[in-house]
Amino acid sequence: MLGFDDSDRSVSWAKTPANEIREIGSQDGSVLVVPVGSVEQHGYHLPVGTDTMLATAVSGASAEAVADDLPVLVTPPIWCGYSPHHRSLGGTLTAAFDQLLAHTQSIVEAGLANGFDAVVLVNGHGGNRALVGAVVSEVGYANPDHQVLGFTYFDLAADLVEEVRESDLGGMAHGGEFETSLVLHLDPALVDQDAMDAEPFDEPYDLGDEDLVKPGPLGVYRPFEAYSESGAIGAPERASEEKGEVLFEFLTDEIADLFEEIHAQNR
């Protein structure tokens, strides 16, 4: 079942006593994982916590896959992302960029204070890309003896998406085939399959985003109702549990390999 802290006890910061956290952090090449998500509308068929729950799920599963080989913990997620463009459709909780930047920096710095050699931010919301990049630079600069890293998890699946997708370009957009497949695999009870009211992704700028896993070089602000009345864009009707399983297992393998590489680089 998807949740905001469904990691196994062996890798969950929240389920670990303080002295054990310090012990894990003090080990050579220790890695702290911080999921970063959002609470925002995802159309009529997906929960507003989709981004946070998916970032948490891939972080936890990947950490569990390598927990026997390296010291790693996963913090509770930073659940409030930067989502002002979703507010008008309801269900969205967001904050000012500078507030979220300061909050995320504080979390990362507190993690480092527990002795961890590296902190990696696992982002699950496209609107957080600039935020995560700024935290990596700011905290990394202030802590040259440690390593701060960050990435958006669904970017890793770009090549696989071209193999498994049934929708045209744009079908993997917000609340579309990609996210709906993952939630169907992890917790199908959270998907209202009778309410998949989404519209095709129609970005007027040629250099704008083309899909969830194919962001364009041009940034533009536009409230989400300009794309879709329901708030979902893409082709959620093309989603399946089977596709979600393939995507999730691939992502878990890729991220687990990255955690191992971070451990090796910081020993």
Rank of each mutant, 00 (worst) to 15 (best):
Q193I: 14
H185I: 03
V220K: 09
R238M: 11
I233G: 11
F178V: 01
L121A: 01
D211G: 07
L184Y: 12
E199R: 08
Y227E: 02
A235D: 13
G127I: 08
R238W: 03
H174C: 10
S240Q: 08
G216T: 01
R165F: 00
F151P: 07
H125G: 01
D197F: 08
S181T: 08
G231V: 04
P204N: 04
A226M: 11
S230M: 08
D209V: 00
P144A: 03
A195K: 10
G175D: 00
L184H: 02
V119M: 13
D202W: 12
Y205I: 13
D168Q: 15
R129Q: 14
E162Q: 12
E237I: 03
D209R: 00
G208P: 05
V183L: 02
N128L: 12
G170E: 05
A232T: 07
L156D: 15
V183D: 01
F224P: 04
G133C: 00
G150K: 03
A173F: 13
N128D: 05
G133D: 10
V164S: 05
P215E: 02
Y227F: 15
V122E: 11
G150W: 10
D206I: 11
L186F: 05
T180E: 04
A173D: 09
A189H: 11
F151A: 07
L218N: 01
E163I: 13
E166V: 10
H174W: 05
S167Q: 00
T152C: 09
A189E: 15
H125K: 03
Y205G: 05
S230C: 01
D202M: 00
S137C: 12
Q147D: 06
G171D: 02
D197A: 10
H174F: 09
V135A: 06
V148A: 05
D202K: 09
P144L: 07
L121Y: 10
E166C: 08
G171E: 06
T152P: 06
L121V: 04
L182K: 05
S137G: 02
A173R: 07
G176I: 08
D192T: 02
D159N: 14
S167Y: 07
D197Q: 10
G234E: 04
E210N: 00
L149V: 12
S167L: 01
G133I: 06
D211E: 11
M196A: 06
V136Q: 06
D159T: 13
A142S: 12
A158W: 10
L190H: 01
Y153V: 04
E225C: 08
E203R: 09
F178I: 10
V161S: 01
L184G: 00
V136P: 08
L182A: 08
A195D: 07
D192N: 14
Y221N: 03
R238I: 00
G208H: 11
L160M: 11
P217Q: 03
V161Y: 15
R222H: 14
V122D: 09
G124S: 05
